[in-house]
């Protein structure tokens, strides 16, 4: 276990950055920074929503615990990013999560993809966690102190997600014939949505040193992928990339259903507190 992994499990509520702290602080992000934070928050939120489905359905109890943990980390990151973004527009994390329409979301298509079988979920986790680790490990140097602080907490947790996904890619790829077949299929279904993660949009120029340019993450991501897939005796899937557009509000067909489910109760009782 690396040093970063070891500390991720020891974060206590006493010293961790909480969304409640961000809501209380004076700092308001510039509009562009807020829109940037919104994209990262939406990725984490939609991924948590997907992963939450597994709790009580995982292949073994230890995985119920592990996937719940990862979902919890992601929802924590989502709450921090959305709370901070919302300060620019006087909106709370819940206003943003529950009372935006689909085209107002900024999540990438990858996190919207269905869970499928366990191998497909692991393939998605593998890509997301390697991408988020490269991203957050650079965002800790953001010129925006709040984004840097959120990233500093998140990178430790995502390091553990990366380890979890990697260990499962190896087990499924090198386990049985069936698990290998499923792992290969899972990676093929996931790979079209990789390219969108590394696409630069005009927003990144407005954000400047507060953000991390997605295209800069591609090479280190590819290296990390290659290391694991080589050990797993797998090839990087040779499939064409899908047209993305999530950061511009153009989503996959899946997101509408997810939001309908996620938002239903909150929207039945507008203005209520829970």
């Amino acid at each position: 276990m690396s040093e970063a992994n070891a500390s991720a499990t020891r974060i206590t509520p006493g010293n961790a950055l909480r969304p409640e702290d961000i809501a209380l602080q004076d700092a308001k992000p510039a509009d562009a920074v807020a829109r940037y934070a919104l994209g990262l928050g939406d990725d984490a939120l939609i991924l948590a929503q997907r992963l939450g489905w597994w709790i009580s359905r995982a292949p073994e109890l230890e995985e119920d615990v592990a996937l719940a943990n990862i979902a919890l980390d992601q929802i924590g990151h989502a709450r921090s990013f959305l709370t901070y973004a919302g300060r620019a527009w006087d909106r709370t994390e819940d206003d943003l999560a529950y009372f935006r329409r689909e085209p107002e979301f900024r999540s990438v298509h990858l996190v919207e993809q269905p869970n499928g079988d366990f191998a497909r979920t692991i393939a998605r986790q593998f890509v997301v966690s390697l991408y988020q680790w490269e991203l957050y490990s650079r965002l800790v140097h953001s010129s925006d102190p709040t984004l840097a602080a959120i990233a500093a907490k998140a990178v430790k947790e995502v390091d553990y997600h990366r380890d979890h996904a990697t260990q499962w890619v190896l087990r499924l790829a090198l386990g049985t014939e069936e698990s290998r077949r499923r792992m290969i299929a899972g990676l093929r279904l996931t790979w079209p949505y990789v390219e969108e993660l590394f696409t630069d949009h005009p927003l990144i120029d407005e954000v400047g040193d507060a953000g991390v340019r997605p295209s800069e993450l591609r090479a280190p991501f590819d290296d990390a992928v290659l290391t694991v897939l080589t050990e797993a005796e797998l090839d990087v899937p040779a499939v064409p990339g899908a047209t993305g557009g999530g950061r511009l509000g153009r989503h996959s067909e899946h997101l509408g259903y997810m939001l309908a489910e996620m938002q239903v109760l909150a929207r039945e009782h507008p203005g209520a507190s829970w």
């Binding site: 073994e60 087990r171 386990g175 069936e178 698990s179 499923r182």
Partner: peptide, 13 residues
């Protein structure tokens, strides 16, 4: 039952 192949893979590995 849906998880059987995953547990088998982990044991085989």
């Amino acid at each position: 039952e849906d998880g059987a192949w995953v547990r088998d893979a982990a044991s085989a590995y």
